[in-house]
């Protein structure tokens, strides 16, 4: 039984938890709140006991964010990254069940802070993180596609590996990682559009009309599709 129960009405559970959350997140926990909530239990002071929770809260989330945003962390450095993440969490507290979702608003946050280059980097890191999260599927050989009758070729729909993601910021990015290791490459606006259309399961006829309109050389097109196939970006056709 805890014996030093304060006189007067106890705090409601809701008020109690709001104050405790504040102690967990504030850089300098308020002494009055500490004294109100935390029982004195030597040899550790109330502040030292609360510090265990304060440390664990931020360290756990920071570890996940460092893992999800490796390029951003490398670009700005460990300490500034940690400081930035504290600001981010204050602006965008996690409302997610899975801690891996905590970083999903980071690029939006940075953009609002007018830090566009960092926002772009964060967006790329995030898309790579999501890409590596994708399930793996069996890829299908589609070398026989061109041997089909023309009308069937035009109706065929290519499909992409689930890890393929597109990002348009300062450049057009194609992100993919069929084996769990995400990588990215910059692509031309036309390549971006083609992948976008494949993602929407558009038939080859639609892709061909796009290419015809852009007056792109047939050699280039063959080169792109061969490369995407070899890299595991295109997984098959149906």
């Amino acid at each position: 039984m805890v014996t030093d129960f304060p006189k007067g009405k106890p705090l409601s559970l809701s008020k109690f938890q709001q104050l405790y959350s504040k102690l967990t997140k504030d850089s300098k926990p308020d002494s009055k709140i500490l004294a109100t909530l935390i029982a004195k239990r030597p040899p550790l002071s109330s502040r030292s006991r609360m510090e265990i929770y304060r440390y664990a809260y931020f360290a756990r989330i920071l570890e996940v964010l460092e893992s999800d945003f490796p390029q951003l962390r490398k670009k700005i450095g460990k300490r500034p990254f940690a400081k930035l993440m504290r600001e981010y969490l204050a602006a965008y507290p996690s409302r997610y069940a899975n801690i891996s979702e905590v970083g999903k608003n980071l690029s939006v946050f940075l953009r609002k802070k007018k830090k566009s280059p960092l926002a772009n980097l964060a967006a790329l890191d995030w898309e790579m993180s999501l890409s590596s999260f994708a399930p793996s599927i069996e890829h299908r050989d589609f070398s026989n596609l061109l041997s089909l009758p023309e009308d069937q070729i035009l109706k065929a729909r290519l499909y992409l590996d689930p890890s393929v993601r597109l990002l348009k910021t300062d450049s057009h990015y194609l992100i993919f990682g069929p084996h769990g290791k995400a990588q990215f490459q910059t692509v031309t606006p036309l390549q971006y559009r083609l992948i976008q259309e494949i993602k929407k399961h558009q038939p080859l006829s639609k892709l061909l009309s796009l290419m015809t309109r852009s007056k792109i050389s047939e050699d280039f097109v063959v080169q792109w599709f061969t490369s995407w196939s070899k890299q595991g970006i295109i997984a098959g056709y149906e």
Binding site: P10, L13, S14, F16, Q17, S21, K25, Y53, S94, R95
Partner: peptide, 22 residues
Amino acid sequence: CWTGVNGENLHDLMPLPYTEEA
């Protein structure tokens, strides 16, 4: 335990006050 309040998740397992209300 509780992991947050007002919709927030602090991703930690925080102890409860052992009260009748809780």
